[in-house]
Amino acid sequence: MNHLPFENWLLNDMPMTSEQQRELDVHLRNCSYCSALVETGRLLNTTKMAVPAAGFTMRFQSRLATRKIEERRRKLLGALLFVLGGSALVMWITAPYVLSFLAAPSTWISVVVSWLIYLETTLVALLNAGFVIFTVIPKFMPPFVWMVLISAFAGVSLLWSVSIWRFVRAPQGV
């Protein structure tokens, strides 16, 4: 049996003219599928709200209180484990150095001092090289290279800002 257009009228809950209603009534006499469609539609439109047992809010408050306690306990346990684990890891990594430092402090002091001297000389050398590059290179660079560089920098900044905005935007529906 051809259900069109009756099925469309029923599925879309379309308002019907009296002529359409008459046609539908005739069709329904012979079509159990469309009758079921009408009946289920009517039931869906008239079914009432189910309501929770009395005291829902009280039960929620007590569940919320329990959850808060659990949350606090979990956070405390997490912090404790983090501190203990971190301390153990630091002790495990530094134990050989600490022990050898305690055994022969003069060796360690000379190593640290030589490292500091190496760091300082490297930094000074890098700064000097950088200064030379920045004073010499701009003289050879045409203006369009500057424009390209500044545009690229602006583009990257924009991309970064948009990424941050998308990342922090509040999602819905949890």
């Binding site: 029923l10 469609l37 289920t40």
Partner: peptide
């Protein structure tokens, strides 16, 4: 869903 409900109802 409406079609499925009608068929099951039938």
């Amino acid at each position: 869903s409406r079609r499925a409900l009608a068929e099951m109802w039938q």
